[in-house]
Amino acid sequence: MHRFANPGRFLRLANRIQPWLKALTVLGFIIGLYLALWGSPPDYQQGETVRIMYVHVPAAWMALFAYLLVGLASASSLIWRHPLADVAAEAMSPVGAAFTLIALITGSLWGKPMWGTYWVWDARLTSFLLLFFLYLGHMALLGAFDDRARGQRSAAVLAIVGLVNLPVIKFSVDWWNTLHQPASIVRMGGISIDSSMQWPLFAMAITFHLFMLAAVIERMRTLLLEARLRNQRLAAFERVGTQARASE
């Protein structure tokens, strides 16, 4: 792991794998969407609305997973001053926020026909909305200070505090009465979903992972190159300064 901590090495590796990752993501979407929309049966109770699950559930998984990674990256930035940790946290945050928004919107569109309402202020939905605001707060703090290091530190503290929300989301359906059903895909004793629905779900889940990886690598590359650009501009500025002094 330590070998990839070097930003230059990371950039070279990223440049090499990114085209493959993009191609795999596109392929994943083709397979996933085919299975989700065409190649799987309607549910005997929910009818065709069950197809919303193939987007909603993987998006919610990604939203939680990305936040966990933002929190871990923030912790390793504060504790070990890992050179890529801040970059990883900053790159992950908007992508995680996007998946959170997808989970919220698709959940709402699923709730209307199945529960009779787009939204209720129950524990699961409210804690998930809080997750979205945690992402927004993290992104806002990163851009809030002229001193980037200060912004990164404040954002990291927020991200770590916000980790408390993850178990709340996970167990909200067991701790409180909510409209949202408890976990029903992976339970104690293994997978409990029918295989005809398991494949589209897993195909979409894998595709969302690939998408997130590609999107985060792209953003990490951008952030590293932006840092390089700032350094070079500073160096150029100093060069002009010394030349001016020399000519006086």
Binding site: L33, I52, V55, P113
Partner: peptide, 8 residues
């Protein structure tokens, strides 16, 4: 419901 979910 299904198409707006996928579209969004």
């Amino acid at each position: 419901y299904v198409w707006p979910a996928y579209g969004a």
